[in-house]
């Protein structure tokens, strides 16, 4: 079970960089944990601090800029490429984001996010650029039921895709494992047939 997600109305943190890979989201040296907790403090670690030193913050990185806040992360296209590490999704969730908006997502990251109740919202390049142009007080509304994302100050809105199975999971906080365990007989029958 993850926390159900329906409507997120929030300001956003913009990271206008393309091809953000999962090594940037959570560097490999933080993958030595055996639990899912506490990854948020190392989210974008090497972009947040100089020389891995928490007292030396990079003032020009959006996560360090006090004017930006919110449950929505907005990033350049091809977000989450590279490694399959689910730690990337855990760190984003643990930091406090529930939605990531980009014009393109890498496949494995998209699945990992959804499996943790973090919604990847894929928008057009044009709409993404419109969001980046908004000031830091602008709120976005992401509506899972209606499958829309809206820039509240201007009313501009765009639809996004999500299959109805995943939508039901998100709205209710269900996970795939519960479903797969529930169809155990079908799986055993499949195994018998092909043996």
């Amino acid at each position: 079970m993850s926390k159900p997600l329906n409507i997120v109305k929030s300001r956003f943190v913009p990271i206008n960089i393309e091809n953000i890979d999962t090594d940037q989201i959570i560097p490999a040296r933080f993958l030595k944990a055996t639990t899912k907790d506490g990854f948020g403090k190392n989210l974008f670690r090497d972009w947040r601090y100089y020389n891995d030193d928490e007292s030396k913050t990079r003032a020009d990185f959006p996560l360090n800029m006090s004017q930006f806040d919110g449950e929505i992360l907005v990033a350049g296209k091809n977000f989450g490429c590279g490694s399959s590490r689910e730690h990337a999704a855990w760190s984003i969730l643990d930091y406090g984001f529930r939605v990531v908006v980009s014009s393109f997502f890498a496949d494995i990251f998209k699945n990992n996010a959804l499996n943790n109740g973090v919604l990847p919202v894929q928008v057009s390049d044009e709409f993404l650029q419109r969001i980046f142009l908004q000031d830091n007080n602008t709120e976005l509304t992401v509506d899972v039921e209606k499958q829309t994302i809206t820039i509240n100050s201007t009313g501009e809105s765009e639809g996004f895709d999500i299959n109805s199975y995943k939508k039901t999971c998100l709205l209710n906080g269900y996970d795939d494992i519960d479903y797969l365990i529930s169809i155990k007989e079908d799986i055993q029958q499949f195994e018998t047939q092909r043996a």
């Binding site: 689910e86 494995i108 795939d176 799986i187």
Partner: peptide
Amino acid sequence: AFGIGTSEVEMVFASQCLLQSKP
């Protein structure tokens, strides 16, 4: 053959299956 996240590792442990959309 493809890479998966840890939640999916757990799915395969539990059911020897994954939920996948055809690429």
